[in-house]
Simulated assay, not measured.
Amino acid sequence: MFTPQGPTFRELAVQALSSIEHGYDLLAPKFDATPFRTPQPILHAVESALGRLGPFERGLDVCCGTGAGVGLLRRVCDGQVTGVDFSAGMLAQARAAHPAATWVRADARALPFGPRFDLAVSFGAFGHFLPHEQPGLFAQVRASLRPGGLFVFPLPAPPRVGSKAYWFMLGFDAAMRVRNALWRPRFVMYYRTFRLADVREGLAAAGFEVRLLPLPELGVRADGSPNCRLVVARRPMGTS
């Protein structure tokens, strides 16, 4: 799973027994050498879709990590691009990779922006938010968008029941629940708590208009449905 440049087992264990913030501070220097970084095919597919949805002026990457999404935003936005994350270590890596972007340290559940962005994206961060936190997160993103602005993120289809990916996610979430029941501080990261029906309901409750676009570059399942969809949530015009 990991390249020789990635973290050791001991480093991963220390990270897993830390808080989310401190854990990512520790992992940040080697994060891009792990499988946790958003894969390039997903970034390319989202960028292609955004090219058809634009143009965009200002862009925001929510929970930006080391800046993979910011690199995409800089290619599809004509104006300033901003990344926000609560890990100082991850922001340091992102700033080194993209010095021309703006970097803000903040919790995504309390974004320090007014309605200034035309486009917001997020990649691979939603497992860090418990289901009851998701509507508040969506409301914060909506408040950061101009009327007509888009909040866009990829949402892979759930793995087939009984597949290796299914058992991995099930086992990971079970292990994380046991860890959080026995150890403090908690490290919230679950694969199976971000379901499409709940996401659509939460986005609608936050005041978004929601549609789904297939990402054909990422292939289809046996039943012909896409392996991954792009969730496109629009803040309606004329809303406060």
Rank of each mutant, 00 (worst) to 15 (best):
L215R: 03
V210C: 10
L203H: 09
V231L: 08
G202I: 02
G224Y: 05
V231F: 02
A204Q: 15
N227H: 13
G202Q: 14
A206Y: 04
A206L: 07
G207I: 04
L203K: 10
V220I: 04
E201C: 05
P226T: 06
P214R: 08
L213N: 00
L215Q: 04
R221P: 02
P216Q: 11
V220Q: 14
L213K: 01
R229A: 08
L203C: 08
N227R: 15
A204P: 00
L230E: 03
L218Q: 10
P214D: 11
E209Q: 14
L203W: 05
L213H: 05
R229N: 10
V231N: 01
V231W: 03
E217H: 13
G207N: 10
R221I: 03
F208Y: 14
P214C: 11
A205P: 02
D223T: 12
L212W: 03
A204S: 14
E217W: 04
L203V: 06
G219S: 12
P216Y: 11
R211E: 15
L212Q: 13
R221V: 07
R200L: 13
D223C: 11
F208N: 06
V231P: 01
P216R: 12
L203F: 07
G224N: 11
S225M: 05
E201L: 09
V199H: 00
P214K: 08
E209C: 08
L213F: 00
G219W: 09
L212Y: 01
V220C: 08
A205V: 09
R211G: 08
R200M: 12
G224W: 02
L215S: 06
G219R: 11
R229L: 13
D223N: 14
F208C: 05
E217S: 15
V231D: 01
A205R: 15
L212H: 05
A206P: 06
E217N: 07
V199Y: 00
R211W: 01
D198P: 01
L213G: 01
F208I: 04
L215I: 06
R211Q: 12
L213R: 06
L213V: 02
S225E: 12
V210L: 05
P226R: 06
E209V: 12
G207E: 09
P226G: 10
G224P: 06
R211P: 00
P226W: 01
F208W: 04
E217D: 14
G207T: 09
A222Y: 04
S225W: 00
L215V: 08
L203R: 09
L212C: 09
G224I: 12
C228F: 03
L213P: 00
R229C: 08
L203D: 07
A222S: 14
V220P: 00
N227S: 11
D223G: 12
D198I: 00
L213I: 01
A206R: 07
